[in-house]
Design a protein around this nucleic acid. Structure first.
Length: 107
DNA sequence: ATCGTGACGAACG
DNA sequence: CCGTTCGCCACGA
């Protein structure tokens, strides 16, 4: 059986909320957990729809791409904020602003 | 139902 | 490192 009131968006938010501090996950990973391993684009689309209210309750900053890098397309301010928030949680970036997913990837 | 769009992913050069 | 190309999926008009 499938979820009823939970759209793909809600599912993405639910999963994102489960990511603990000090860890990160990728769009593709969330898509897989949501039941669609190839819906990575849809995941990013869902997070882009987040409003200020949601930003307070959802750790969107812990979601990065499979290359361990921040996307924040069209909004570099948001990308800079994301990096700061992650570093604050203990995440370390290398000289190229890339995170070692082998160390922080969740689940 | 069809089309355009997008915080993606992997493969190539 | 960068840019390009193709494929995948969900959503709104």
């Amino acid at each position: 059986m499938k979820s009823n009131a939970d759209s793909f968006y809600s599912l993405v938010y639910q999963i994102t909320s489960q990511v603990p501090a000090g860890r990160v996950t990728t769009y593709g990973r969330i898509a897989a957990l949501a039941g669609s391993p190839r819906a990575s684009r849809a995941v990013g689309y869902a997070l882009s729809a987040l409003k200020e209210e949601n930003l307070q309750q959802i750790p969107w900053q812990r979601v990065i791409n499979a290359q361990g890098r921040i996307s924040g397309k069209g909004d570099l301010l948001r990308a800079d904020l994301q990096k700061k928030l992650l570093e604050k949680e203990g995440i370390v970036f290398d000289e190229n602003d890339v995170v070692n997913l082998a160390l922080y990837l969740w689940p």
